[in-house]
């Protein structure tokens, strides 16, 4: 077994309580970041769900020939922002209105003539579901001579944009704040480990160990603690997630957990904090002794 591994194991065995405290601190710090991450992931998913409703409706003049509509649909579908174009004729429009606007059901039944026009319903690709893109596409559709009117709920999409921007900004700030607090707490914990081994460090230096050699076991120690803390944080996050989902009575059972790549990032973050914290703490200590 290499000296590096042996010294790292010895460090764990010599101060099991301090090691456990370090791992628990890292775990709970990352758990807090993880809980916030879960909220962020699910909020993003919810906003994504809402944004699927961003749609442009182009009402067509009566009497537009079907072949013109087919050609125009193909043109519009070729726009880079457009995901799909669906033609809704007058009868389908009435049928939908009767289904969706139940309160006017009787009024629609008594109609002698269908007042609803045919339309093209244009869905945008996910990355273009914002007010500016929707308005740009709407303007181009308005250019077709057989298009009577174009609507896309500009105000509603602008509100969605604002909500998305706000959620992104708040998420970034709070996420960074949580991560910063986690880094500070973990750094202090690792500093305690370094101070606990100050005597050993001074002896290592006096017998001629290089600073790089002295750092080695501390870095491995920090990385291992970060790894274990990261794994424990994932377990805690999963447990909290399941507990919340099972006890939720408001249809939150569709909540999402982290994807594997997010979990891997979380563990990497733990290892990086462990390594970085150790590097800074040992470096500072070596400069001061």
């Amino acid at each position: 077994m290499s000296l590096l591994t042996r010294e790292t194991i010895r460090s764990f065995r010599r101060a099991p309580m301090l090691s456990a405290l370090s791992i628990t601190t890292i775990a709970f710090s990352l758990f807090t970041v993880g809980l916030f991450g879960l909220v962020a992931v699910n909020m993003r998913e919810a906003l994504r769900g809402i944004s699927t409703r961003v749609q442009i409706e182009a009402f067509l003049l009566r009497g537009t020939p079907p072949e013109t509509i087919t050609l125009a649909s193909q043109d519009i579908a070729a726009f880079p922002e457009v995901e799909a174009v669906v033609y809704v004729d007058e009868d389908q429009a009435l049928q939908r209105a009767q289904q969706e606007l139940v309160e006017f059901k009787d009024a629609y039944r008594d109609l002698q003539v269908n007042p609803l026009p045919a339309s093209l319903q244009v869905t945008l690709k996910e990355e273009y579901r914002d007010a500016a893109s929707a308005a740009a596409v709407a303007r181009r559709i308005e250019g077709f001579s057989f298009v009577d009117d174009v609507r896309f709920g500009q105000e509603w999409i602008e509100r969605l944009d604002r909500l998305r921007n706000l959620a992104g900004f708040v998420g970034l700030v709070i996420g960074l704040a949580f991560a910063a607090v986690a880094v500070v707490i973990i750094g202090v914990t690792i500093r305690m480990t370094v101070l606990q081994r100050a005597r050993e460090i001074s002896i290592m230096r006096l017998v001629g160990a290089t600073d790089a050699f002295i750092r080695g076991p501390f870095l491995l120690d920090g990385a291992l603690k970060g790894l274990l803390g990261g794994l424990l944080a994932i377990l805690l996050s999963r447990a909290a997630f399941e507990l919340f989902r099972r006890n939720s009575t408001t249809g939150l059972h569709t909540l999402l957990f982290f994807e594997p790549k997010h979990l891997a990032l979380g563990i990497l973050f733990g290892v990086a904090i462990g390594l970085g914290g150790s590097l800074v703490s040992v470096g500072r200590h070596l400069r001061n002794v």
Partner: peptide
């Protein structure tokens, strides 16, 4: 230099 200190200390017993 910082790198030379360990080399010196390997020539000393303390």
């Amino acid at each position: 230099t910082a790198r030379e200190v360990p080399k010196l200390r390997r020539r000393l017993g303390i």
